[in-house]
Design a protein around this nucleic acid. Structure first.
Lengths: 205, 205
DNA sequence: TGTTAAACCGACTCAATGGTCGGTAACAAT
DNA sequence: ATTGTTACCGACCATTGAGTCGGTTTAACA
């Protein structure tokens, strides 16, 4: 059964390196040879494991990107506390540059979303579904926050979720190259102001 | 001097159609032939007017994109009123789908910014400069708003500008394909909440 | 009208890239 | 050991797309 291990190992190396380079240079701007060269693998090896470049990227999405988004943005929402600080923390953490060897800035939804939009419907759909899951989870946690009296009653939770997602995606655009720590700080600051504005005012004025 | 007219006319047709298709399918994913076919022009015509595809796109940025951003996002800021409603209006307007033949959703800074990031430094720089000008103008109008007593004194204007830009760029990602009018409405709603939170509370109270 | 120079044509080159395929090496099962 | 299967190799193919270039048309002007 060592063959099976080898298979998984090679596929995993391909996916990990692929994500890294696709994120760095963009999907359409990266050739398979670019990736293969770095891994010292051949065309044959690649097509033995994946049926096309597209299939390959879908595997990457499902195995790596989804997990990353869940770990950074969805799972942290699973608590019973006031959701706003939790959300704030998760966003701040997701914008953190990766440690050492890790990929910079956690991940790259906005980049891929933009790149595939109108160019590859199938991949776009996969990516949008990820956002959708995040959104649904945000909305649900916000609604609970409303019930628990942390969020003002007149607030539109779907709107808040949309707004949070938009600002986050946009920040990722601005942080792009930029090692500007300032930007992230500014973002978190303003998000706090915003969250303040949708917080339930203590009934005992 | 009719030759000169012809020249300008052809170059303009090329730029306009180029922007349209680049925006639709992405720069790297659009071949010159795609554009030339639609205009019924030849390779020869193209290279008679532009020295490369890159040069061509830079011309498009300078002639069309810059103007669009100015018209939609910078010039409206030139008033003496309370800046927050003005900014709100300009953003709402900029997210408006174009009338009939016009390009959908005004323009496409975020898309190009993402596409060229780390792939073409020169073009990236041009695009970032556009954002920079917008930012500078936002900051200056916000600072005036503070002086005029519309914005709370403790607010960090640079932070506000960054946050506004981020949320706007992100919205453009979400609105992408989507004809979802709801999204835009939600965005404007939440932006109002946010603006409320940075508004100077009436001193009398 | 003849000359010149711009505008434009389109076949061609050349490199890049996704994908194919026949073959080889290593391991597993009998 | 033999046989079959899986992982992998790398030359090759087909297509695409940026850029070239010699030639043709058209407008300006002497």
């Amino acid at each position: 059964m060592e063959k099976n291990l080898k298979r998984r190992e090679t596929m995993h190396r391909l996916c990990a390196k692929g994500l890294e380079i696709f994120h760095e240079k963009g999907y359409y701007n990266t050739s398979l040879d670019d990736i293969l060269k770095e891994l010292e693998l051949s065309k044959g090896a690649f097509y033995h494991h994946f049926k096309s470049k597209e299939d390959y990227f879908i595997t990457i999405i499902q195995n790596l990107i989804v997990q990353k988004v869940y770990a950074l943005l969805v799972e942290p929402l699973n608590t019973q506390e006031n959701p706003l600080p939790i959300i704030l923390d998760s966003l701040e953490n997701a914008l953190e540059p990766g440690k050492r060897n890790e990929m910079a800035y956690g991940f790259m939804l906005n980049d891929f979303l933009t790149e595939f939009n109108k160019r590859n419907l199938e991949i776009s759909t996969y990516l949008k579904d990820i956002i959708k899951v995040w959104e649904v989870n945000l909305v649900s946690v916000l609604k609970r926050g409303k019930i628990d009296g942390h969020i003002a009653r007149h607030i539109d939770c779907e709107g808040v979720a949309t707004y949070i997602i938009a600002s986050y995606l946009g920040m990722r655009s601005l942080l792009m190259d930029n090692t500007n720590r300032q930007l992230k700080y500014q973002y978190v600051q303003q998000l706090k102001h915003y969250f303040n504005s949708i917080t339930e005012r203590s009934v005992i004025a």
